[in-house]
Amino acid sequence: MTTAQEPGGTLLSAADLHIAFPGRRGAPTARAVDGVDLDIRAGEIVALVGESGCGKTTLARSLLGLVPPTSGRVTFAGEPLDYAGRALKAYRKRVQLVLQDPSGSLNPRHTVYDAVAEGLRIHGYAGDERAAVAEALSRAGLRPPERFFLRYPHELSGGQRQRVVIAGALVLEPELIVADEPVASLDASVRGEILALLLRLREELGLSALVVTHDLGLAWNIADRVAVMYLGRIVETGTVEEVLTSPRHPYTQALLSVLPEAPGDPVVLSGEPPDPSRIPGGCRFHVRCQVLASGEAQRAGVADHCRKVDLPLLSGGGETQVACHWAVAGGTP
């Protein structure tokens, strides 16, 4: 498999990305992605983490070319993403999607062979289709692959169905996969196997991955770097060890506090879940922030900033960054 960049070079990049959806019947516009910079390097696994409704799936779909941005741009291997039909088809061969629900993404009337071969047929593959399907299934851990050719999805376990979905992505030899909650629908006993598979594919193929998840525990087990998203923006980013062992943003701290192994009591966030049609002024997290509610931000002298002063976008690179007045002022967990 060939890659567009040397290991460590930027493969996929979003710059000042905005995606807005007009409201129905006079409802306000939803700013689902409201200014995001994000880089993914060749051979790197990045976890994009946040609650439902934070914009992470919309961002991922835009990086795949499925949702054109309202403004900003996406580049791949240094070239701006072209949304014209032929160029976009070529791009989607290089960047593949793995969905969270294998039962929903596999046609129950198609055999495993047809499900994996579908991408080859769409892209007019001229090689040995049977050999390519067998290799993809084998790489995904379904061996011997011929034993699975004529099976249907209902004849497989949940873990096997997810491996078929991964094989369907691998058969086109992509350089990057976008995995949206790749183990959310699987039993705990199978989750580790699928995560180990993704890590092995990175080692064997140099494959890059963006893993979209609400689960910081999953990010810890698989990612090199993590980007925490809240209400359309990335609010904290850095290496997985730095962000998850020393979180600086109160939102990241709250997400981590509910993990079973976390010390102390879970942080229960007050207020409503994020609403992209009603983004508050100042720090967009301030209406639910436990640090502001507890008086810590007031004692640090930044409470007014939290309520009134917007924060700059974080850059998309690998350095550790946080969008939080309290953390920048020296606040500590």
Rank of each mutant, 00 (worst) to 15 (best):
205 L>S: 08
207 L>I: 06
22 P>E: 07
107 N>C: 09
169 A>I: 01
298 Q>T: 12
54 C>K: 02
174 P>W: 03
84 A>E: 14
200 R>S: 06
45 I>R: 00
158 G>M: 07
267 V>I: 14
249 H>S: 05
125 Y>T: 10
145 P>R: 14
88 L>S: 05
6 E>L: 11
311 L>R: 11
122 I>P: 01
135 E>G: 00
4 A>K: 13
88 L>M: 11
13 S>F: 09
204 E>G: 04
205 L>H: 10
45 I>T: 04
261 E>C: 01
304 D>M: 03
295 G>D: 04
58 T>R: 07
107 N>K: 05
123 H>D: 09
236 E>M: 07
278 R>I: 00
35 G>V: 10
249 H>W: 07
153 P>Q: 14
4 A>H: 13
91 Y>H: 00
233 R>F: 02
189 S>P: 05
253 Q>S: 12
151 R>D: 14
146 E>S: 15
19 I>V: 15
184 A>L: 04
64 L>G: 10
248 R>I: 14
197 L>E: 12
296 E>L: 13
131 A>D: 02
25 R>V: 01
289 C>N: 13
36 V>A: 11
111 T>G: 10
74 V>D: 01
162 Q>A: 03
326 W>M: 09
266 P>L: 03
279 I>M: 00
219 A>K: 01
163 R>H: 02
304 D>K: 07
94 R>E: 13
14 A>V: 05
101 D>L: 03
55 G>R: 02
255 L>K: 08
150 L>V: 12
174 P>S: 04
78 G>K: 10
107 N>H: 10
225 R>S: 00
245 T>H: 08
208 S>W: 02
265 D>S: 14
249 H>Q: 07
138 S>D: 15
32 A>E: 08
121 R>H: 10
22 P>S: 06
250 P>D: 10
76 F>S: 09
17 L>W: 03
237 T>E: 04
79 E>R: 15
158 G>S: 06
4 A>Y: 13
70 T>K: 03
294 S>H: 01
279 I>V: 12
18 H>R: 13
80 P>W: 08
58 T>D: 06
102 P>N: 10
318 G>S: 15
195 L>C: 08
95 V>I: 10
83 Y>L: 11
290 Q>R: 13
301 G>P: 10
308 K>F: 12
160 Q>R: 07
26 G>N: 04
94 R>L: 11
203 E>F: 11
6 E>S: 13
281 G>N: 03
175 E>A: 12
204 E>P: 02
18 H>F: 14
246 S>R: 15
48 L>P: 02
154 H>V: 12
83 Y>F: 15
257 S>C: 06
278 R>D: 09
157 S>I: 12
273 P>E: 05
129 E>Q: 01
219 A>C: 02
173 E>Q: 13
140 A>Q: 11
113 Y>A: 14
216 L>G: 08
193 E>W: 14
157 S>G: 13
130 R>D: 00
22 P>T: 07
75 T>Y: 03
46 V>L: 08
269 L>V: 11
213 T>H: 04
133 V>I: 05
254 A>R: 08
